[in-house]
């Protein structure tokens, strides 16, 4: 049973941007996963989450920045609507590890949606990935890493825009990526990024 707030949220997202899932390199299954995607818009998180089949949504938690999603209506949407894990982007306390809430969710068996660029870019092609993805990949080798490419959302609600332009957006799920034996952090991150970029060329249909 879905919460009414979640159902409403998914309805609005589908009305605005469609969020049609395309399972290109994998299928929607119960395996624990980390979905990692290009980040161009405030709707990205919601679009990936809404595109998942309903039964996977309740066990899949997007990561959201506390400085944006952490107060008021946005906090209500993030925590009640799509069960987000809030993290601190600006590390105020040097001793705390911002990845700790992610590890806690993974240990509980939840899947995660993350944006390894850390911030929204101006174009659809992602910038350099930050190291969090590599650290989680090595600490949780049993969790599948699924590259995800979002098209058109940078046109719908780019950085700095207030109103979205309704557009049809597809969410493309690629084949799982694993850390190869002896692979360096940089090589892995570049390969993971290339997996997301590679999905950009797949025809929308």
């Amino acid at each position: 049973m879905m919460r009414p707030s979640s159902a409403l949220l998914v309805g609005v997202v589908k009305l605005l941007v469609g969020a049609y899932a395309r399972w290109i390199g994998t299928t929607p299954g119960p395996a624990q996963r980390i979905y990692f995607a290009n980040h161009t818009s405030h709707i990205d998180t919601l679009a990936i989450w809404s595109s998942l089949p309903r039964r996977l949504r309740s066990r899949t938690r997007p990561i959201a920045a506390r400085d944006y999603w952490g107060s008021g209506v946005k906090k209500y949407i993030a925590t009640r609507g799509f069960g987000a894990v809030l993290i601190d982007r600006a590390r105020e306390d040097a001793a705390s590890d911002p990845l700790e809430p992610l590890r806690a969710s993974l240990r509980e068996g939840d899947s995660l949606i993350i944006f390894p660029e850390g911030t929204r870019g101006a174009s659809a092609v992602p910038a350099r990935f930050r190291s969090g993805l590599y650290r989680l990949a090595t600490e949780f080798p049993a969790v599948e890493l699924i590259p995800v490419y979002l098209d058109n959302l940078h046109r719908s609600l780019p950085k700095g825009a207030l109103l979205p332009v309704p557009l049809v957006c597809t969410v493309r799920f690629g084949a799982p990526v694993t850390v190869a034996a002896g692979e360096t952090k940089e090589a892995f991150l570049e390969r993971a990024r290339a997996a997301v970029v590679g999905l950009a060329d797949q025809a929308a249909a």
């Binding site: 469609g18 058109n152 046109r155 780019p158 825009a161 109103l163 332009v165 309704p166 557009l167 049809v168």
Partner: peptide, 14 residues
């Protein structure tokens, strides 16, 4: 929505 998705637009059109 379908028409605009397939039509090129620029930031000034938003």
């Amino acid at each position: 929505r379908e028409f605009i998705t397939l039509t090129p637009s620029r930031p000034g059109d938003r």
